[in-house]
Nucleic acid binder design. Structure first.
Length: 877
RNA sequence: GGGUUCUUAGCUCAGUUGGUUAGAGUGUCUGCUUGACGUGCAGAAGGUCACAGGUUCGAAUCCUGUAGAACCCACCA
């Protein structure tokens, strides 16, 4: 083995120079492509498809880094890892963008017609659809780009239609005239899940309605309280609670609806809360969900007063027509005031449903829509999760999922849009007969196809199964293994994919679901465009490097809790990358002028080698365990502390003597081992930081064309390398060195000044002396049980051994006394605790034996230390 | 109204079934041109584990309650 000849390795790692280079290399060499291979077990992930016109944001970074970690990790473990990327057509989101774009050019979609409009949508998709995909490459994602899919691909489109037809024929999809959530901005129905409730400071208007007798004479007034006075134009009743003593006489009477001059009944219904407002409710059956139900119970008239954009229609009095709903509100209130029918206006905090996409208040609206029956689909999907066939991480999401599934209502799947999967239903022009199939009716001229398209989620719910375009592929890769997604789409997507998997495949779509953290800013606010608190990940990558961003975001992201992200936190990852870089640089620079020799790797071994191997095996073991439990931030911490603390801070320092040895063979043996371990270390780093690990791996020796660290195996855990006695020995060295450094620090002894050290304790091995001397900068080191403390010296304890540093002329007795007093106090405190425990009979009798034994050992240990400290203190005086 | 999660060092967070001296990063302070790295090295200070009860020989950890925070669901005219 020979390291590459390096004229100069830059002092600081420069990610910008290496990242694009390796991504191109990986793509050119098909590094991420997966083919069916029956001899290999697949590990499959389907990407949560971002909106085709979307831009990468911080949430995507966390999400996709996690997927990439698992794909690269599993690939290195020998699985046939396949990560299918793609995008979602995002029906409503994309359509509104195209509409806005056309509007600027003065074009209305209805003027140009469906076909023309869809052309614009496809142009838009082609123009912006590649952006997020390119951005993902900057992050280093190892997606199988040859398998890139789009929810409007021909094959996928066909599958969506087939699913609809199947469910329709089974009676699970039906058409109905129902009250739905209407988005006046997109002029479409939306599902319950697309309604976001916001708490809004509003008002409660108290309106007086005249009560009339049979002759039409006003005999009284009732006062109704409403947050939406404009809907009074559609009122067809007034309701009171049947048990409300105040209004018993009113039931069955008639009210003359002001402005409309319509006579409407007073009905009695339990729905009315006696305590709330005036106890009298105006009923608008066509524009309120509760009023709708009440209207059906009392067979009231349903008067729709709005057009599809929430302007008033011809069902309202002439003066109020063709006005925006909020203008009508003002006008209605004003007129009531003029008529002296406005009793009062109160401030009122109200929860208002907004359209998720349109960001305007939704309007409950009666219309013909398509619905999917949920009960039969939800039950098995719930069972799969409850039985553990699909595992949620963290698993508390099961409760949320269960609650939703238990209370699920039918899903409104039709959208009054054009961009999407058009519902495969045709209506006979004459007979009104309904035809539903994957192919249009033969006598197509006699039929009219349904105008509506499907909800985006009624296409993406097939994602896990239909990104595979051949039966063989589907059979091989499905069920997928892991889904990584944000919890905010648990209902939209996760739940429905589980339903679709069970319904169409008879099998779970994935075995594990990892719900990622939500990324917030340092103040804990959601990242949003309007707040401007969402950094552009591409800027962050340019400033810090993709590896740094990847590592940082996982390092700070706990499983299941929000992440408070700040760009400056990327210093964690950048510094770490730089640390790895410099460790490699150090080894490579020293290996330049010698021959590395694999046959030397078992020669001149000492316990530093055994120690680091043991530490490394432990790290591998812990890493597997953390990743198996989806504790990815724990995994990053294992890597960080092994690389930084064990490998760099101690191991490299311990072997420096040998690296600088004049004996070429020793030097060669030590460097060979250090580099072999370093190479293994790069492999465990690779899933987390693919670029820098590839870069250095390629520098370590001459590689074949197309080789990649990605294709190497993950280092195998080897229990025989666990070496507890080596760990013990180095632990002692570390403690002694730390104690001496502490004395140096506290006594202000400059690092450049060499000191003598005496240790009263067991004699040291040759290696131990060597290491302690060099790491603590010791001139003369002596260790034995016969050591006597020199007069003017500072002292400390380490694992029972007494350490003396003679400081004639340098020692500050007060400082030394303080140091020892501090240690004495600490020991006394701990001793008091353990003594109390051991003198408690109940503890001694009840606690497990090994716990009691441990406490006893502690006590003995501390007592011995304390007495030594006391002697040292006495000697000071 | 129902539910979920959370409250540990100045800040951000670990702390696995209750049992070592409650840890890390960052920030602060001190020292360091030590032949990889100042994006670094060494050292130090800093915590009544939100509060109150309870269970237990023993609680940051389990239970109950209180206060506070975030989110989800339902929804109030």
């Amino acid at each position: 083995m020979a390291v590459k000849n390096l004229s100069e390795i830059p002092k600081a790692y420069n990610p910008a120079e290496v990242e694009d280079k390796w991504y191109t290399y990986w793509e050119e060499n098909d590094t991420f492509h997966s083919e069916r291979d029956d001899g290999k077990e697949p590990f499959t992930i389907v990407i949560p498809p971002p909106n085709v016109t979307g831009m990468l944001h911080m949430g995507h970074i966390l999400n996709n880094t996690l997927q990439d970690i698992y794909i690269r990790y599993k690939k290195m473990l020998g699985y046939n890892a396949c990560w299918v990327p793609g995008t979602d057509h995002a029906s409503i989101a994309t359509e509104s963008k195209v509409i806005a774009y056309l509007k600027e050019k003065g074009i209305n979609k209805f003027d140009i017609g469906r076909e023309e409009f869809l052309k614009h949508c496809w142009e838009w998709t082609d123009k912006y659809g590649g952006i997020i995909i390119k951005q993902l490459r900057k992050l280093g994602t190892s997606c199988d780009w040859q398998r890139q899919r789009f929810t409007m691909d021909d094959h996928y489109y066909q599958k969506v239609i087939e699913a609809f037809v199947k469910l329709y024929k089974e009676g699970l999809i039906y058409r109905g005239y129902r009250m739905v959530n209407w988005c006046p901005a997109s002029k479409s129905a939306i599902s319950d899940e697309e309604v976001i409730y916001k708490t809004i400071q509003g008002k409660l208007w108290h309106l007086k309605y005249p009560v009339i007798d049979e002759q039409g004479k006003i005999i009284d007034h009732v006062v109704v309280a409403t947050t939406r006075p404009e809907t009074m134009l559609g009122d067809t009743a007034v309701a009171v609670n049947p048990n409300d003593e105040r209004y018993k006489a009113l039931i069955g009477k008639t009210v003359l609806l002001p402005l409309c001059e319509r006579e409407i009944p007073v009905v009695a219904d339990d729905y009315v809360d006696i305590e709330f407002g005036t106890g009298v409710v105006k009923i608008t059956p066509a524009h309120d969900v509760n009023d709708y139900e009440l209207g059906k119970r009392h067979e009231l008239e349903f008067i729709n007063i709005f057009n599809d954009d929430a302007t008033t229609n011809d069902n309202v009095p002439y003066d109020f027509r063709n006005m925006d709903r909020y203008d009508v509100r003002k006008k209605v209130v004003k007129r009531f005031d003029e008529l002296e029918l406005l009793e009062k206006v109160e401030d009122y905090m109200n929860s208002v449903g907004y359209s998720q996409r349109g960001d305007v208040p939704i309007e409950p609206y009666l219309s013909d829509q398509w619905f999917m029956k949920m009960d039969d689909l939800a039950k098995p999907a719930l069972d799969l999760v409850k039985k553990g066939e699909i595992k949620f991480h963290p698993n508390h999401w099961i409760k949320t999922y269960e609650h939703w599934m238990d209370n699920i209502r039918d899903w409104c799947i039709s959208r009054q849009l054009w961009w999407g999967h058009r519902i495969p239903v045709w209506y006979h022009k004459e007979t009104k007969e309904i035809y539903c199939d994957v192919t249009p009716p033969e006598d197509i001229d006699n039929w009219r196809q349904e105008e509506d398209v499907l909800d985006t989620w009624a296409s993406s719910w097939l994602w896990a199964q239909d990104v595979f375009t051949t039966e063989e592929d589907q059979k091989y890769y499905y069920p997928t293994n892991l889904l990584v997604t944000a919890p905010d789409i648990i209902f939209f997507w996760v739940a429905r994919m589980i339903m679709a998997g069970e319904k169409f495949m008879g099998e779970v779509p994935f075995k594990d679901v990892y719900f990622t953290s939500l990324i917030r800013d340092v103040q804990g606010r959601k990242m949003s465009k309007s707040l401007g608190n969402s950094p552009d990940p591409i800027d962050v990558i340019n400033d810090y490097g993709a590896d740094a961003l990847r590592f940082t975001i996982n390092y700070i992201a706990p499983l299941g809790q929000d992440v408070l992200f700040d760009i400056e936190k990327c210093e964690i990852g950048r510094n770490f990358a730089n640390k790895i870089w410099n460790a490699g640089r150090f080894l490579l620079m020293n290996a330049q002028d010698i021959e590395l020799d694999d046959s030397l790797k078992d020669k001149h071994i000492d316990f530093a080698d055994e120690w680091i191997q043991s530490r490394f095996q432990n790290a591998i073991k812990d890493l597997h365990s953390a990743l198996d439990k989806f504790e990815v931030n724990q995994a990053t911490k294992i890597i960080y502390s092994f690389v930084w603390n064990d490998y760099c801070d101690w191991y490299l320092e311990l072997i420096k003597n040998q690296i600088y040895s004049d004996d070429k063979e020793i030097k060669s043996a030590v460097l060979t081992r250090a580099l072999l371990l370093f190479e293994d270390m790069l492999k465990i780093i690779h899933p987390f930081m693919p670029f820098i690990s590839e870069e250095i791996w390629q520098l370590l020796s001459e590689r074949e064309a197309g080789d990649s660290i990605t294709k190497t195996g993950f280092p195998k855990y080897d229990e025989s390398l666990i070496n507890e006695s080596a760990e013990e020995e180095i632990d002692f060295v570390q403690k002694v060195v730390a104690a001496i450094r502490n004395i140096r620090g506290e006594m202000n002894i400059p690092p450049s000044k060499q000191i003598d050290v005496l240790i009263k304790g067991d004699e040291l091995s040759e290696n131990q002396s060597k290491y302690i001397s060099s790491l603590a900068r010791v001139k003369k080191l002596e260790a034995s049980q016969n050591v006597v403390k020199p007069k003017a010296s500072a002292s400390a304890l380490a694992k029972g051994a007494e350490i003396y540093v003679p400081l004639e002329g340098l020692i500050d007795l007060d400082l030394e006394r303080q140091r020892l007093e501090k240690e004495k106090n600490r020991l006394e405190g701990m001793l008091a605790g353990v003594s109390k425990k051991l003198s408690n009979e109940k503890f001694v009798n009840n606690a497990p034996k090994d716990v009691v034994e441990r406490e006893k050992a502690k006590k003995a240990d501390w007592e011995s230390s304390l007495s030594k400290i006391n002697v040292l203190l006495a000697e000071l005086n």
